[in-house]
Design a binder for these strands. Structure first.
Lengths: 191, 191
DNA sequence: AAATACCCTTAACCTAGGTTAAGGGGTAAA
DNA sequence: TTTACCCCTTAACCTAGGTTAAGGGTATTT
């Protein structure tokens, strides 16, 4: 529980009453490997903070192929914002890649915090802005950079993820197949 | 000027003092077609609201090819958030696709509003969350849906843009070449 | 009213990355 | 301790989309 409070210290730190209001509303969950926190068709009702472990969010296309949208490891957030906001059935899955410990806050409780403690509006504005920047960068890379280069960038940018994720998961995140990744890596160090 | 105030009515509407503080800090600009508001190497210093017209933001890859990251028409915002936040030189361009009228607010002024009127934190949190949802959706589509289908989706999702943008701009936004778009469209209605 | 710059289309040829199939090694579950 | 499931790799073949080049039509500019 301390970890999540500490986490906010890199934004506007919470005071005693905010900590109180916040932690009161958190639900702790232990999740097994491969356990789902959200699946297609469900409405996403919670914001999830990862204290320990690693989760992924992905969509499945018409051919049944999974496309990883993001990973969340320690000190990161994961949720289907679209489904949460509009209270509509999600088209995404959230699944634990490793056994994990997470804290969840419900939409209602988060809304309560937003209206009663403006600091949460501020902190989550900044958090989401950073995520937006990251995502836009990734989109540009997808359009402008060949796959292997994107893979190498991933390794240097997310070393904590690169070490613990199988290549098949990273490939999906990059929008390529594991077979192609394998081939491209081989070709590259042959030169 | 009324338009931008009205715009906030779909979020938390501004009260008199907020309107006052806000409008005081806006700079109106008339922009010619093809005029640049930001170019690679510059630090992005302003948030830009489009009252009239249409702008685009794009990056240029190592081969000199442009990749459109987004369009902003009436009642929309455009800025390089990454450059604005970290005050680092941008790798992006913002250019008017049509003669436009915009209102700009500087980073400093916006920060002032954020700290003195929490409602701006709230409203911009919601605005950016919606943008994040949109962007994530687009990324998933890029990975999971063939080009022509993405094009058709674009037409139905952004009719106000589809009508005024040349296909070459839309193709760039979708991550394909105009030549391929042309070919794909022809093949589709041949069936 | 020219001149220029875009924009769209077609077509031939090319390549990054996908698909299918198979084998082998590692690791979690029974 | 098996069994089963991943995960990684290789290779042959395939396809969505890129590249280059060229022509004609429309807008802007001058």
């Amino acid at each position: 529980m301390e970890k999540i409070i500490n986490y906010f210290n890199s934004y506007l730190p919470l005071d005693q009453s905010e900590i109180q209001a916040f932690t009161q509303r958190l639900i702790k969950k232990r999740i097994k490997r491969r356990q789902l926190l959200l699946q297609e068709g469900d409405v996403c009702t919670h914001f999830t903070y990862v204290e320990q472990g690693c989760l992924k969010m992905f969509g499945v296309d018409d051919n049944g192929v999974e496309h990883n949208l993001l990973f969340a490891a320690e000190n990161d957030w994961i949720t289907d914002l679209g489904s949460l906001h509009k209270e509509r059935p999600s088209r995404l899955y959230i699944e634990a890649v490793e056994p994990s410990v997470v804290y969840q806050i419900s939409k209602g409780d988060l809304w309560y915090l937003y209206t009663n403690y403006p600091k949460f509006d501020r902190n989550f504005r900044v958090i989401i802005e950073d995520k937006y920047i990251e995502l836009q960068d990734r989109l540009l890379q997808t359009y402008s950079t060949p796959a292997l280069e994107r893979y190498n960038e991933f390794l240097t940018r997310y070393p904590h993820l690169a070490l613990r994720l199988p290549n098949t998961q990273i490939a999906s995140y990059l929008g390529i197949t594991p077979e192609f990744l394998s081939r491209a890596k081989k070709k590259s160090f042959k030169r």
